[in-house]
């Protein structure tokens, strides 16, 4: 019996779908904490739940959407003193979310960033230390723009743009929420 092309074509994508399952976890949260705050003697869970007003304030100042109502935050301390904030965030990649972490100093500098999970076809260079090092020391006075102060990663422009904007948003979140705690 001849194959009927339209039903056949409709079956193909259904058969091909087998879930995602290819995400690579490069670092756990604990490993990323150790990498960014090796000098901390404790990291205290300080997760925040943002009010609508706080989300609006962050979006207005950062210029990007504060997608998450809850943000995973840890307070890094050494000898009982605050040495910074460790924040885990997710931003949109081309297909899936990119999970990364940023360390922020109490005076609003980026201490470092780590990519925890990256799921995209191209652009694994976001994990390279050379690219991540570009964020170290940045403050809200910096542009946070690709090909200006942060290099673009070819084939992953959307991912690198969203991580860049995400780090800036976390600095704003620190200013709006964390510094007032």
């Amino acid at each position: 019996m001849p194959i009927r092309p339209i039903p056949t074509l409709l079956m193909v994508p259904v058969a091909l779908v087998a879930g995602t399952g290819y995400a690579t976890e490069y670092l756990t949260v604990a490993q990323a904490q150790q990498a960014i705050f090796p000098d901390a003697d404790q990291l205290i869970d300080a997760a925040v739940e943002l009010s609508d007003a706080q989300r609006s304030a962050i979006e207005k100042q950062a210029g990007v959407r504060q997608r998450w109502k809850k943000q995973a935050v840890w307070r890094a301390e050494k000898a009982g003193q605050l040495i910074g904030w460790f924040v885990v965030d997710e931003v949109v990649g081309k297909h899936e979310f990119i999970t990364y972490a940023a360390g922020l100093t109490p005076d609003g500098h980026v201490r470092g960033i780590e990519i925890l999970v990256y799921r995209e076809t191209y652009g694994h260079q976001v994990r390279n230390a050379e690219w991540r090092q570009k964020f170290a020391g940045k403050t809200l006075a910096d542009p946070f723009k690709l090909d200006e102060d942060i290099p673009n990663i070819s084939g992953a422009t959307l991912s690198s743009a969203n991580v860049t904007k995400g780090v800036k948003r976390l600095l704003v979140l620190q200013q709006v929420v964390l510094n007032k705690r």
């Binding site: 409709l10 091909l16 290819y22 081309k94 297909h95 799921r119 076809t121």
Partner: peptide, 13 residues
């Protein structure tokens, strides 16, 4: 139009 984007392959109907 419906699109699935995987890491190594993609499909669009």
């Amino acid at each position: 139009t419906l699109h699935y984007g995987g890491q190594k392959w993609w499909a669009t109907l």
